[in-house]
Design a protein around this nucleic acid. Structure first.
Lengths: 233, 233
DNA sequence: GTATTTATGTGATGCGCATCACATAACTCC
DNA sequence: GGAGTTATGTGATGCGCATCACATAAATAC
């Protein structure tokens, strides 16, 4: 299907990157969004949202990868998750105190839709099925992230690195060929370790034939072994 | 206001422990709940819900304290939060895969309301304002818990114990006199450390005059100092 | 009230990994 | 293409705290 290059002329109705929840909106509701949304294209390594900034829009990620992070009390960054396409940025803040809890930065080139948050909330309030779908998807993401962190706490370095690789394979790329757009330091910020430890473990996994690296790309040869390490260390 | 001892005869409409969200339901909707709910009184240290069990009801905690926990891959318990009155147990599972993600055990004597989950979901789907309120409260709890864990990861033992004491003071009891119904081992399961470390730090805080203990009760003398330790170690 | 069980405190030991320093590789900018 | 910056790899060091063992205190069961 041929798409016009300038997506801003494309009606939300015909958007190829539409979210599941949007499918539950009727024509009038979709029109409302269409009239109150902005499309944006963003380059890699660009700041999108800052922790502490007020929530004015719901941001729908149509394509690309985004890192969600926070600054810890020791002034180090802590990466919370990699946001994939067809997700919303900062959604948890929309239903809270109206300030963004985390920061977002593009890891690749992106396509975003900004939807006015008051419009979005009025849709939630007026369409119970849409609300339910939003509730369900927000809850699923929250639970998955929460589970990752509560699982991380008592793990030693090998399990943590295995976890990260499995995360990219299972959740982000759905593939064993990983094109991870993160430095070793960033992987460390995600795993809760140091960049030196990340390097040592990756070198070890390579020497054991569990993975293969080529530049930034990692190929998982033995995911069973990784899962075992994830569980038992 | 005098209450009948047998609360099962009390209409949900007149419940003194009603949730904020319930206030958004109309008479017909409240009637629906009333006809599809069970009241239960539970003794301390009683199992309420098991991880992995199917979600059949929404459980509203009218009074008492509950610990929410999970079993880690090393077969140790990990306490995720202390659930306070006027909260729902296992709500995040309701919108997910329909199986309880965590286990719940009473820490004190409880009063619970069991609400049929299908009825609850239909209320969410049909009443956008109620859905919004549920979404908001679930999101707030999720975010607070998530924040606690992502904050915990890089903290050393003194900060972790300070965090736990502040949590009980600010979130659970809203007081500086803490009647914590947990053993040292359970505090360790919450803080992510060992019971010996918990004991050593509490002894240290006592010797520094930051807290005072009397049996299981802890009184916080210097919460500013605790907050400082929480932040900087 | 006593026996048994559980909770707690304490000291000693050693492991895991962060940190530091430095060298090399890769990338970016001009 | 070269200079400068950033990313990465590696070795050495020492700190923080879990673990273990054991003794004592407190709670529970009969």
């Amino acid at each position: 299907m041929r798409l016009p290059k300038d997506h801003s002329s494309l009606h939300c109705h015909d958007c190829p990157d539409k979210s599941c929840a949007a499918a539950l909106l009727n024509d009038r509701e979709i029109d409302l969004i269409f009239k109150n949304r902005n499309i944006s294209e963003v380059r890699k390594r660009t700041n999108i949202l800052n922790e502490g900034s007020p929530v004015s829009h719901v941001i729908y990620l149509r394509s690309g990868l985004v890192k969600e992070y926070r600054i810890r009390s020791d002034n180090q960054e802590q990466i919370l998750q990699i946001v994939k396409p067809h997700s919303y940025l900062g959604m948890t803040s929309l239903f809270g105190d109206k300030f963004n809890h985390y920061s977002y930065e593009s890891l690749t080139d992106l396509k975003l839709c900004y939807i006015d948050s008051d419009i979005f909330i009025s849709l939630v309030r007026n369409n119970g099925n849409f609300a339910f779908e939003i509730l369900t998807s927000v809850e699923r993401d929250s639970t998955n992230n929460f589970h990752r962190f509560i699982n991380q706490g008592n793990k030693k370095i090998y399990s943590r690195v295995a976890d990260i690789l499995i995360y990219f394979s299972r959740i982000v790329f759905s593939s064993k060929k990983l094109q991870i757009p993160l430095t070793r330091s960033e992987l460390a910020e995600m795993a809760g370790t140091s960049r030196e430890s990340i390097g040592r473990v990756i070198t070890k996994f390579k020497s054991e034939g569990i993975i293969k690296t080529s530049g930034k790309n990692i190929t998982i040869n033995d995911i069973k072994k990784l899962e075992n390490i994830s569980k038992f260390g």
